[in-house]
Design a protein around this nucleic acid. Structure first.
Lengths: 154, 154
DNA sequence: AAAACATATTTGCCTTGACAAATATTCTGG
DNA sequence: CCAGAATATTTGTCAAGGCAAATATGTTTT
């Protein structure tokens, strides 16, 4: 009887672990780039600014869903970013329960500064991948996400 | 002057966001499968058991590094899993600072029960990917991880 | 239109992770 | 060998997220 561990080669790590590791390094890298510019922003706040800059004003719930952040946590992040003058809560024109979250001029300016960090990290991360491979990676991840969402909502 | 948002198509989401979304759904799916079996385990605890089952006994620091968990957090997770009888802290034979973390019989038995959850989730996640595509996804993620680690340690 | 239900935001509570300090042990350079 | 640096583990502290409850508003059903 084999009493030793059932060893699997290191290269054969499961998808879940691998994705987690990539995510950790990605966040680490982004926060390092941001700190190197003398700015004080968490990764989640960076992502929020990016979403707002790319997609324009949206509801707090829409923003929360798009980054899979809890609604309560979103309220607090909005407090912080609004307190620092990077965004604004405006009333929603059609729905008085909701907010219209929009970047201020300062928020847009900050995002302009951050684009280079974003680009540098993504370029470094995919450095060894060809254009075709980058597209494939994106495609595969999108399909995995879709499959998991189908599974989880049923 | 264009005062509207600089819109990028939704399909063009950045790698960082995409990876985060996949990770969230993966964790959600795994925890749902575990809960469906009536077990009470967090994703991180599941991963710890898996590492120990696959690779055999190791140091607390080795375990922590392999899943990118903080050392302090590892101590507390070990407390929990040891308290529930799934693993054991033994003295390390060569290094009296270190511990040898090993699964108990109960821990091995638990992992046997969990393998099916693990397999189901990974299969569902990669359902739409061919074998070649699964290998490529794994390869690309490994290369991205390597590139980021190179970048972050320099 | 009223009741029942659903949704958006906020807040309180709890758990967990990161970071730093403390302690014990090991390693390294002189 | 010894002083200093490095490493393993633990613990305290703090910040952040998840969940549930509260409130306000919107939607659907009857």
């Amino acid at each position: 009887m084999n009493t030793g561990p059932l060893v699997t080669p290191t290269s054969q790590e499961s998808l879940g672990l691998l994705i987690n590791l990539v995510r950790v390094e990605l966040v680490r890298s982004m926060e390092a780039e941001i700190a190197a510019k003398g700015m004080d922003l968490r990764y989640i706040q960076f992502v929020m600014l990016k979403r707002l800059a790319m997609l324009g004003p949206m509801t707090a719930t829409e923003l929360a869903r798009s980054v899979e952040l809890d609604g309560g946590a979103m309220t607090r992040q909005l407090d912080q970013l609004e307190g620092r003058g990077y965004l604004r809560r405006r009333p929603h024109a059609q729905d008085r329960r909701a907010l219209r979250i929009e970047l201020t001029e300062a928020g847009n300016a900050l995002w302009q500064q951050l684009t280079s960090c974003n680009d540098r990290v993504l370029e470094a991360a995919q450095h060894s991948l060809s254009d075709v491979e980058r597209e494939r990676l994106h495609d595969y991840l999108g399909r995995v996400l879709h499959a998991l969402r189908d599974k989880n909502r049923s």
